[in-house]
Amino acid sequence: MPYKSILVINTMHIGDLLLITPALRTLRANYPQARISLLTDKTLADLVRENPCIDECLTIDKHGADKGLFALLRFIRRLRARHFDLVINLHRNERCSAITAFCGAKERIGYAQPGFGHFYTKCYPNLAMADTPKKLATKHQVTVHLDMLQKALGLKKIDDRGLEMTIPEAAEREAARLWQKMLDETAAAVRTSSSEQSDAATPRPVIAFNIGASWATKRWIDTYFAQCADQLIEEGYAVAFFGGPTDVPIVDACLAQMREKNSPHCHVFTGRVTLAVLAGLLSRCALMLTTDSGPMHIGVSQNLPLVTMFGASPVPTFYPYDARDVLLKTPEPCHPCGIHDCPKQGDEHMACMKKIPVEEVMKYVHELLGKYGGKAARELPRENADEKGQHACRIVEL
Rank of each mutant, 00 (worst) to 15 (best):
G236R: 06
T192E: 11
R219F: 10
A137Q: 07
L281G: 04
L19W: 13
A200R: 05
L281V: 04
T270S: 04
R77K: 15
L69T: 15
C123D: 11
F241M: 11
M12P: 00
I298F: 05
F102E: 08
F209S: 03
L136H: 14
P320T: 02
P333I: 11
A229M: 08
K261F: 00
M148C: 09
L17I: 15
C334V: 12
H63E: 05
F242P: 11
K139D: 15
K134M: 14
A189R: 05
N89S: 14
Y237G: 08
P205I: 02
Q33R: 12
L24V: 03
G236Y: 07
M129D: 13
T40Y: 03
R378I: 10
A130T: 15
E367Y: 04
A323T: 07
E169M: 09
P32E: 05
L281M: 07
N51D: 15
L72H: 03
Q197G: 08
I221T: 03
D131C: 03
G68I: 08
L328E: 08
M12L: 10
A201M: 12
T59R: 07
A240V: 12
F209I: 09
D252W: 00
Q141D: 01
L278D: 00
A112M: 09
D55C: 12
K122T: 02
E348T: 11
N30F: 10
I60E: 01
V396W: 08
T270V: 04
S283F: 02
F209A: 01
K157H: 13
E360A: 14
P205Y: 02
R191Y: 05
K139I: 00
P333N: 10
D252N: 12
R284E: 09
C123L: 04
E94V: 13
A65S: 14
E56K: 15
F119D: 11
K371E: 12
K42H: 06
I9V: 15
C337R: 12
S5G: 03
S97Q: 04
R284M: 07
L72Y: 01
V251E: 03
P295C: 09
G212R: 03
E397I: 15
P52W: 01
N10R: 14
D222S: 09
D184V: 08
C254S: 04
D222L: 09
V358Q: 06
N126P: 07
D222N: 07
I109W: 10
M1E: 00
R272Q: 15
Y224C: 01
R191T: 03
Y237F: 13
A377P: 13
T186L: 00
N210K: 11
P168G: 05
G346E: 13
D159W: 07
R259H: 14
I158Q: 14
I20G: 13
F242A: 08
T21F: 01
M353W: 12
V206E: 00
V87W: 02
S198P: 00
R77E: 09
A392W: 05
D292A: 00
Y124M: 10
H349T: 01
D184M: 00
P133Y: 11
G236K: 01
K354R: 15
N93C: 13
C352W: 04
E196Q: 03
A187V: 03
V326A: 06
K156A: 12
T143R: 15
L278Q: 10
F269D: 08
E359K: 15
A200T: 04
E383R: 13
P168R: 11
R35T: 11
F310E: 06
L178Q: 13
T59I: 10
T330V: 14
I233V: 15
H340L: 09
W179M: 07
P249K: 14
